[in-house]
Design a protein around this nucleic acid. Sequence first.
DNA 1: TTAACAATGTTAACGGCAATAACTTTTGAA
DNA 2: TTCAAAAGTTATTGCCGTTAACATTGTTAA
Lengths: 206, 206
Amino acid sequence: MTRAAYHHGDLPQQAHQQALEVLRADGDTAISLRAIAKQIGVSAPALYRHFADRETLLAELAVTGFEWLRERLLAVDQTEPRRALLEIGLAYVAFANDEPNLYRLMFGGRILPRGAHPRLDEAGLAAFKVLEDTVASGQRRGYLKPLPLPLMTATAWSLVHGLSELMIDGHLPAADAEPRLAESVLTLLMDGSRNGPDTQPEDTTS
Amino acid sequence: MTRAAYHHGDLPQQAHQQALEVLRADGDTAISLRAIAKQIGVSAPALYRHFADRETLLAELAVTGFEWLRERLLAVDQTEPRRALLEIGLAYVAFANDEPNLYRLMFGGRILPRGAHPRLDEAGLAAFKVLEDTVASGQRRGYLKPLPLPLMTATAWSLVHGLSELMIDGHLPAADAEPRLAESVLTLLMDGSRNGPDTQPEDTTS
DNA sequence: TTAACAATGTTAACGGCAATAACTTTTGAA
DNA sequence: TTCAAAAGTTATTGCCGTTAACATTGTTAA
């Protein structure tokens, strides 16, 4: 018998796992504490010994999601700047496509308000930092323009996040016609962020 | 007495308005048909004479949101391509910042699944078309690269959507330090999308 | 060894919710 | 003026999150 198992098995982990499966299958709105309790053979209030409330359980799922995302981003080869930037963008979008319901939970600002769950904020920042490091590295190695880092990362993140959301919500039919849409989209931004010889033509503002 | 008012006043419009106010204040999860009915002095089931279910009411709110967004985008001056592209992006982000909860509802894929509410899909497409037209115009006038239109619009939309979501969810602290963050972000993409003299340097891929 | 205590579970209950059924009132048109 | 459809009502069902009060199990220290 393993430790950390008082009466039942380790209920928290089982509940976490069960909730994750429901989330993946039917989205966060389908997660019911009562149903989860019944499925793992325990009374509903028992869950409250381990989770303050439903939202806290959801927050833990989101933390798991950010950890997975971080691992995916960390696995990207960083030897060549251009390739690293493209690959990390593709990895980000691929994660969202592989785990759409989890991704929506992680970034559904209304269901998990920022600031309410410190561990969640930390996990999100840790994942974001991988992206930031890659951009910073691209600048250090002279591939990207020497613009303020917060600006560069905000732009990169906005693009991959927006692309991810629009794709998983079916707003981009172009994704079906063009299987390498993500690659093309990322390339388009990278062309404007590159530290080229002189990419600023005339100012046509009136 | 106006027409279209059988017993009450025109209940559908009042319910719509009340739901919109709750949405703006506390987000879609705070919208309760029972509460709305009580607030406008009617029994809860009465609402079901006008809305198939709660989700349909939410869908109507989202339709309103897309119509507002479309109007904002249509108001952008289109005389000069570069300025039009920048301004339409700023208008998009400004809308999201002005109506964060409405914006989240419009793009919360899990609560309003695409395909379930035809009027919503139409309204979304109509708003998207304004953005697409602006990009197409930018290409026609030679300002933007002659890449496939679906690719260009997907990129533009991804950027403004991602930026909007990250901003309203408080994920971009850079937004506080840099009040013109949106402008800078949009400029960065536009630099890569511009039909410059020769913006393609050497290919550094191994 | 055992007494005390904390951790973990139980059943019962409250209030709120979306939704449906069955019924009543109002309206407008034949 | 009758009558059917539209728009409202109360009553009810079956979920849900959450709390209160109580029971049980494991750990720890006297």
